[in-house]
Lab assay of single mutants.
Amino acid sequence: KRPMNAFMVWAQAARRKLADQYPHLHNAELSKTLGKLWRLLSESEKRPFVEEAERLRVQHKKDHPDYK
């Protein structure tokens, strides 16, 4: 399984919050909304998630050196 990218790291927590706020939204609508919200974030707001995704990528490479 591939490591999560920055969006997926962020969306993991954001999806729970959004689903709690809008329990009537279908998963497809949640995903579209999350995409729009992510694009509205500034680079500095995204930075911690980009850094975490990079950490996960490096760890994955270490754990699975033959993964392509």
Rank of each mutant, 00 (worst) to 15 (best):
K1Y: 01
R2S: 05
P3E: 03
P3R: 13
P3S: 10
P3V: 04
M4V: 07
M4A: 08
N5H: 09
N5I: 06
N5E: 10
N5V: 02
F7L: 14
F7R: 00
M8C: 14
M8T: 08
V9N: 13
W10G: 00
A11T: 06
Q12L: 01
Q12R: 09
A13M: 03
A13P: 01
A14Y: 11
R15D: 00
R15C: 02
R16L: 06
K17H: 05
L18F: 08
A19H: 12
Q21E: 05
Q21A: 11
Y22C: 15
Y22D: 03
P23L: 11
P23R: 15
H24S: 07
L25Q: 00
L25H: 02
L25I: 09
H26L: 10
H26T: 15
H26P: 13
H26F: 08
N27W: 14
N27K: 14
A28R: 09
A28F: 15
E29Q: 10
L30R: 02
L30T: 01
S31Y: 01
S31T: 05
S31C: 08
T33V: 11
L34F: 12
L34V: 09
G35N: 10
K36R: 07
K36M: 02
K36C: 01
K36E: 02
K36F: 01
L37P: 00
L37D: 05
L37K: 13
R39A: 09
L40Q: 15
L40M: 14
L41C: 04
L41W: 06
E43K: 15
E43R: 15
S44D: 10
S44F: 08
S44N: 08
S44R: 15
E45V: 15
E45G: 13
K46A: 03
K46W: 02
K46H: 07
R47I: 07
P48Y: 02
F49A: 13
V50R: 11
V50L: 06
V50N: 09
A53Q: 07
A53S: 10
A53E: 12
E54V: 03
R55H: 09
R55C: 11
L56I: 10
R57I: 05
R57G: 11
R57Q: 10
R57M: 09
V58A: 09
V58N: 13
Q59A: 09
Q59E: 13
Q59W: 06
Q59V: 11
Q59F: 07
K62W: 06
D63N: 08
D63Y: 02
D63R: 02
D63F: 04
D63G: 06
H64E: 14
H64K: 14
H64D: 11
H64F: 11
P65N: 12
P65Y: 09
P65V: 11
D66A: 03
D66C: 06
Y67C: 11
K68V: 06
